[in-house]
Design a protein around this nucleic acid. Structure first.
Length: 256
DNA sequence: ATGGTGGCCCGGCCA
């Protein structure tokens, strides 16, 4: 089973690239973030033509998450369901082929110490609480998406250059750690320990070509799935060419 | 070069 995640930075603008990628990577499940499309305008038909059913949680102009699956999508949940401010449409979950799959788009946080940074930490704490009340770590669970946190210094191009900035601070890493402590592991790190393997590069200043990126797109898997991880890839090629997202898709292959 | 690119959708916000 191949499960993927990709911040597409507008599914409307990226539809051709997403279709192309689905055709050659053929994931069983693709979690998408920053779809920037309302549920009513979601392009379900072209994805259906490729064999994928889709579920989305989208507000329109900003944020938005979705799951495309060719192994079913049952028991859909949109958002935390607490009635609290969710800072936009950032969570959708469905059961796909027996795996509870969550597509998440963690708030960016902007500047350290800003209200947005504090809200990012609060959102991560809400995600942990959501897992506590909706799933069990002994079951097959995936939490995949753009976490806007680089788990450790291997995951940034220059720890000194970004030191103290968002995505790499200790409180953000601790909040991510609290989610992992629920019973999840970073599938990529179960398999590989190299540095300089990134999933996002700022559009600005030619950062992609300078290899200045971060690994912030993660597939967190529960123990029953961690034991099945065989292979993972950040598809850097999908960041190249015409009209790319600023993120590359990432996938993990699970043994049956 | 105190910006830079790109998405939303048309002036500025967001990443």
């Amino acid at each position: 089973m191949r499960i993927a995640t990709w911040n597409v930075n507008s599914l409307t603008a990226r539809l051709a690239r997403v279709e192309e990628w689905l055709e050659y990577a053929r994931p069983d499940v693709l979690c998408m973030q920053e779809t920037k499309v309302s549920d009513g305008a979601f392009p379900s038909l072209p994805l259906s033509a490729l064999g994928y059913e889709t579920v989305s949680n989208g507000e329109g102009r900003w944020n938005g998450v979705a799951i495309a699956s060719r192994v079913g999508a049952e028991d859909v949940q949109r958002g935390f369901g607490t009635g609290a401010d969710e800072q936009g449409a950032r969570l959708v979950a469905a059961t796909c082929g027996g795996v509870r799959v969550h597509s998440v788009y963690v708030p960016n946080g902007r500047a350290v110490g800003s209200e947005h940074y504090e809200a990012k930490l609060a959102w991560l704490a809400e995600l942990r609480a959501f897992l506590d009340r909706t799933c069990r770590p002994a079951d097959p669970v995936v939490v995949a998406g753009d976490f806007n946190v680089a788990p450790d210094d291997r995951d940034v191009w220059d720890p000194a250059e970004v030191s103290g900035a968002t995505h790499v601070t200790e409180p953000e890493r601790a909040a991510l750690g609290a989610i992992e402590q629920w019973g999840l592991a970073d599938a990529f790190r179960l398999l590989y320990d190299q540095d300089q393997l990134y999933s996002w590069w700022d559009y600005r200043a030619g950062n992609f070509h300078k290899h200045k990126g971060m690994r912030i797109d993660l597939l967190l898997v529960s123990k029953p799935l961690a034991d099945r991880c065989r292979y993972a890839l950040i598809d850097r090629n999908a960041r190249k060419g015409r009209q790319p997202s600023d993120h590359a898709p990432v996938f993990v292959d699970l043994d049956d």
